[in-house]
Design a protein around this nucleic acid. Structure first.
Length: 494
RNA sequence: GGCCACGUGGCGGAGUGGUGACGCAGCGGAUUGCAAAUCCGUGUACGGGGGUUCGAUUCCCUCCGUGGCCUCCA
């Protein structure tokens, strides 16, 4: 099955044909690490993680290179570092800040079920590559130096604006920015800019300075993926100017017709129907949400919507996902480890291959789940699909994603099932803890209710049931087939 | 102002030029002391207006609405 991907360059779905099937190469613009990442930042990370997983499935794990950069120098970072690390040398200060912030980001996205990219390069470790590209651009007549800046001269590139589909005239008409006097053309953008002594800076042929916004990605993709590569991804807000300018830099530096063959952009996220913003009070960091919801629930919620559509992130959606994943985990938990490893059903792969149609994948998973009782192939299909898209959960998914030792240690179905149960218990405990309720209290109340029931004191048993319900505990009565006794199991409700 | 997306039932959300997925919620039934859970069954939709067509939710135009970019925000 061939992959088809919506390509911003062509505004249509293109067949994906890798430049080298032995090394499929993808670059995604990563976070600017100056503070906690918010849930909007999580969308591209999750979306391109799914693509990474699909590519690994189709081409083999050893044949896909996924680069997600770390932007660790930028004016917001510089300002935050100056504030938080007074007295520390600027370059050391941003390093301290960004290492701390990136560690947090890495933990966040790991909890969201994302694989580690093959390479996570840092901008500040690619200054030499940036300088090399800028020198090529200058010698090629695409860039110039003025007042300590190196600038890309946009009119020097014939088809600038191709990605964003903007003509220079359009942009001129909409321009509202004050143009720096040293620019030859209002559209020219900075490749390198001078730093004062209290700003981070590196030596360059144009004096001590720091990179412009876009050059880092040209440098890092070049270093790790080559002059051209297969897929370049990021949020739709990056189409212009970020990706447009990256394309200009890389193509002009290397004299290529393309930087990447396919550009993919995920849509934006809203929260409860409104734009997420601090002033509206609906601004959520990934960490805050992870305090209340398992990572796989956040991931599920994200994948319910196609990546190019705007997504409305809601509590109701999370509750829905919590319930659904609980059911699905329940259905697959008794399977053997080996049963997870086979290829997922063709309809799931086909849906993923059609421009990552994850909502259709979800529909297919619902179908598999509804048939799972009594249809072992459907049950296995559900398990394999959930493994592929990373929905097995915080405790179980790493068995398949990260740790060969763990896999070897899990010799039988019982051990894997124990992990599923541990995962479920952790989720349950977390909810009870939030409500300040202990499991012992729940069990005592359930026992008291059963006693009342046996005594036909239904008023009392119903009162206890209501009391438990108020704690978020839902009861399920079942009749033991052998003894005829009523037995009560329970679960937490979100 | 310029450019670009999107607008499907109560909610979420696929898809398609011709008998309208799927999930949640709702409703009816089985079950239950009553519930919950489970199982079975079930209704409602393609923003407005034009046009193309035998036929449009699907193609074209326009209007309205929402969002994005044009200000280093995924």
């Amino acid at each position: 099955m061939a992959i088809r991907l919506y390509n911003t360059l062509t505004r249509g779905k293109d067949d994906f044909v890798p430049i080298d099937a032995g090394n499929v190469r993808m670059y995604v613009c990563g976070p600017t690490v100056y503070d906690f990442a918010h849930i909007g930042n999580a969308r591209p990370v999750i979306v391109f993680d799914v693509l990474f997983r699909l590519l690994r499935h189709l081409y083999g794990e050893a044949h896909v290179t996924y680069v997600r950069n770390i932007t660790d120098v930028d004016d917001k970072i510089n300002a935050r570092a100056a504030r938080d690390y007074p007295g520390v040398a600027p370059v050391a200060a941003i390093r301290d800040l960004t290492e701390k912030t990136y560690a947090q980001f890495e933990q966040d996205v790991t909890d969201l079920g994302c694989l580690k990219p093959t390479v996570t390069p840092r901008a500040t470790e690619h200054i030499a590559e940036m300088i090399a590209i800028i020198e090529r651009l200058i010698s090629g007549g695409f860039a110039y130096v003025a007042e300590g800046h190196a600038l890309f001269h946009v009119p020097a590139m014939a088809d600038y604006g191709k990605l964003a589909r903007r003509s220079l005239d359009d942009m001129m008409a909409g321009a509202r920015v004050e143009v720096a006097p040293y620019k030859r053309d209002p559209m020219d953008f900075v490749l390198w800019k001078p730093s004062s002594d209290d700003e981070p800076g590196w030596d360059s042929p144009w004096g001590r300075g720091r990179p412009g916004w876009h050059i880092e990605c040209s440098a890092m993709s070049w270093k790790h993926l080559g002059e051209t590569f297969d897929i370049h991804g990021g949020g739709v807000d990056l189409v212009f100017p970020h990706h447009e300018n990256e394309v200009a830099q890389s193509r002009c530096a290397f004299h290529k017709d393309v930087m990447a063959n396919i550009f993919m952009h995920n849509g934006f996220l809203q929260v409860e129907g409104e734009k997420m913003s601090k002033s509206l009070g609906n601004f959520f960091t990934i960490r805050e949400l992870l305090d209340d919801w398992p990572g796989e629930v956040l991931r599920f919620n994200m994948l319910k919507t196609h990546y190019r559509q705007p997504i409305d992130f809601t509590i109701k959606g999370l509750e829905d996902g919590w319930k659904t994943l609980d059911e699905w985990h329940e259905k697959i938990q008794a399977l053997h480890l080996a049963e997870f490893w086979e290829a997922p059903p063709v309809e799931v792969i086909d849906a993923l291959c059609d421009d990552l149609n994850t909502p259709l994948v979800m529909a297919n998973l619902h179908s598999l789940a509804s048939r799972a009782d009594g249809d072992e192939e459907a049950r296995r299909g559900l398990a394999r699909s959930m493994r592929l898209v990373g929905l097995l959960g915080k405790t179980v998914q790493p068995v398949f994603d990260r740790s060969e030792e763990v896999q070897l240690a899990i010799a039988n179905a019982q051990q894997l099932q124990a992990l599923f149960r541990e995962q479920k218990k952790q989720k349950t405990d977390a909810v009870l803890a939030k409500g300040g309720v202990s499991e012992a209290t729940v069990k005592a109340l359930i026992a008291a209710r059963l006693d009342a029931r046996k005594a036909k004191n239904f008023a009392e048993s119903d009162r206890i049931r209501d009391e438990l319900a108020a704690m978020g505990v839902v009861l399920k009565d079942t009749k033991n087939k052998d003894t005829g006794e009523i037995e009560t199991s329970w679960d937490v409700k979100r």
